[in-house]
């Protein structure tokens, strides 16, 4: 049985897809395990903190705070200032009319469970379309295929369309939804995914199948461990699973945040909902 009030999300589903045992330990048993996830730790933390500040900065801007005032708050941090400038030149967003919903959460019922999505930003052009924005402060730009394979790319539009939200002033068609990843490493080349009915049906099948599968698993024994042991080098449960002693080096993988930000990201940032930057 999953914890009371448990909600599925893109990040815990991604954990399950990456390693069922990790899902069991992190989410099913809520087992704290203080192994180091990646080295150098301080550098990794700084990156996460900077990412959190960047998200906060955009939220503030989208809520109407003055950009000059905001720029002054990051003047002491060259990397953050650079991201901020790039964001200010992100015309795709700034030219888009519509109401802004920064840091917004939606949820739906699926397969007898609740699935939640926490959006960095939704822009709603009433009666026309809704655009999902997600900020990624990666140092290297992942391929489009990589994004396509992420649970986030499926969960976010699916929840938006399925939640029947009145945000757009009526029922929302899949074709009215698109998802945009803004990547710090390539700020002028956002990765855009347009949604459609076929995709919705596929995602619905896939996500409900996944959730049903998880719900049938009991806690009597350890769930299966990933066959890809490279994941274990960046996982705090490494010692518990007998999958090595020392953590992996950050420089050895791309898109570190999405690969390893689980509980560390959570505790470093004091409970930021979904870490993916």
């Amino acid at each position: 049985m999953l914890p009371a009030n448990f909600q599925f999300s893109q990040s815990n589903l991604q954990d399950y897809v990456d390693c069922p045992r990790r899902f069991q330990l992190r989410h099913f048993q809520a087992q704290a395990w203080p192994g180091v996830q990646a080295e150098p730790v301080l550098e990794y933390e700084r990156h996460l903190e900077r990412g959190a500040r960047f998200h906060r900065l955009i939220e503030r801007h989208q809520l109407g705070m003055d950009s000059a005032m905001l720029a002054a708050t990051v003047a002491g941090d060259a990397e953050l200032s650079a991201w901020w400038r790039d964001y200010l030149h992100f015309d795709y967003l700034h030219d888009l009319p519509g109401r802004r919903y920064p840091e917004f959460s939606l949820s739906v019922e699926i397969a007898g469970a609740r699935l939640v999505a926490m959006y960095d930003l939704l822009v709603v052009v009433s009666g026309e379309r809704v655009v999902i924005f997600d900020w990624k402060t990666y140092h290297r730009e992942p391929s489009r295929q990589w994004f396509l394979a992420r649970l986030q790319t499926r969960v976010y539009p699916f929840v938006l369309v399925s939640s029947g939200t009145g945000l757009s002033g009526g029922n929302l068609l899949p074709e009215q939804v698109s998802m945009v990843y803004w990547v710090a490493a390539a700020p002028l080349e956002p990765v855009v995914f347009d949604y459609n009915s076929k995709r919705l049906a596929v995602d619905c099948d896939y996500l409900s199948g996944l959730i049903r599968e998880i719900l049938t698993l009991g806690d009597g024994s350890a769930w299966s461990m990933t066959a890809d042991e490279s994941r274990c080098r960046f996982c705090e449960y490494r010692s518990l699973c007998d999958r090595g002693v020392y953590p992996g080096l950050l420089e050895n993988i791309s898109n570190i945040d999405d690969n390893i930000a689980g509980s560390v990201g959570f505790s470093v940032l004091g409970g930021v909902g979904e870490v993916g930057f």
Binding site: A4, N5, F6, Q7, F104, S105, L106, S107, V108, E109, G112, A113, R114, V116, S162, S163, G164, T165, G166, L167
Partner: peptide, 15 residues
């Protein structure tokens, strides 16, 4: 309240 809002039978939408 949290228990009710996260229950599967609660209407979908914003939190």
């Amino acid at each position: 309240y949290q228990a009710a809002f996260t229950a599967p039978d609660w209407p979908g939408g914003a939190q």
